[in-house]
Nucleic acid binder design. Structure first.
Length: 279
DNA sequence: CTCAGTGTTCAGTG
DNA sequence: TCACTGAACACTGA
């Protein structure tokens, strides 16, 4: 699920549960893949008894700053990770409104935090591409230190954006997916941006006109802001977005305007595009 | 049973 | 060394 807007949703959820609270209890799944080289004991020692002083995000990386000293916990949701709290609908059920979450705790729990005021927060990951790490100075160490700009928090000016994009020679979609260029863009956002900016996903970034590169920035900004504004609830995305139709895998797939949607592989990822608009 | 998938990493290539 | 590509990773659900 998680691209920038979904991770931002997770950050906000974590903030509502954890900010200013003391972590009273920590339980971890035994999973040496998700807990990359960190033992459950180390995690527990790092977190228990600590106050969460902020919940931060850059791109798809999410971390808590603990009061006083590190190390601080860093979370990445991979392909199928999420935060959950009791009585908060998970993202896939969000379309039903204020649905009480069925089943607590959820399946695929990796870490379960309980706070001094009774609040609880769980990270799940059903595919084990997610990671939970510890970092002394999260922003100054990999992976966060290697990320490009966050398009919600630190979008460059049109001129700077265009210059950076046009400095790359990979297909424009590959550049958008590169977290060192911009942090937080994943497969569906890249396709949506290129559709709305009317750019063929295979076009080499260094062959774009400056005006085209600026259209990419405009579309990216609009899409990220709109998706975050509705808390990443997909049914609230504008009806005109390619997003809603992109997995109509059959040959009949069309945008709401009736344009034919086709599928390609670009940068190793399935790519939905609309030749009539992006050709 | 087979395969794609809202991601990242790393070996291999030019 | 840099930039880029494609396979591998792990596992659920269609």
């Amino acid at each position: 699920m998680p691209e920038l807007p979904e991770v931002e949703r997770g950050r906000r959820l974590a903030e509502s549960i954890a900010l200013g609270r003391t972590i009273a209890r920590v339980s971890c799944a035994r999973d040496e893949i998700v807990f990359e080289a960190v033992s459950p004991r180390t995690i527990q020692r790092a977190l228990k008894g600590r106050v969460v002083s902020s919940c931060r995000r850059k791109g798809k990386q999410l971390w808590f700053e603990l009061d006083g000293r590190g190390p601080h916990p860093l979370f990445h949701f991979g392909m199928a990770g999420a935060f959950h709290a009791p009585n908060v609908a998970p993202l896939k059920l969000a379309s039903s409104g204020n649905v009480r979450e069925t089943g607590w705790p959820p399946r695929f729990v990796k870490i379960h935090l309980q706070f001094d005021d009774g609040g609880e927060l769980i990270m799940t990951d059903k595919r084990r591409f997610g990671r939970i790490r510890l970092r002394d100075e999260p922003e100054n160490e990999p992976p966060i230190s290697e990320l490009g700009f966050d398009p919600l928090l630190e979008m460059p000016s049109p001129a700077t954006f265009a210059a950076r994009l046009m400095a790359r020679k990979a297909p424009t979609k590959a550049v958008l997916l590169d977290q060192k260029f911009a942090a937080g863009i994943g497969n569906w956002i890249a396709d949506e941006v290129l559709y709305q900016a009317r750019i063929d996903p295979r076009r080499r970034a260094n062959e774009l006109e400056s005006a085209e590169a600026k259209r990419v920035r405009t579309a990216l900004k609009r899409i990220i802001e709109a998706a975050c504004k509705v808390n990443a609830e997909k049914r609230k995305f504008p009806k005109s977005w390619l997003f809603h139709q992109r997995w109509g895998k059959n040959a009949e797939a069309r945008t709401v305007k009736g344009e034919k949607i086709e599928h390609l592989t670009v940068a190793g990822r399935t790519t939905a595009w609309v030749p009539a608009v992006q050709g």
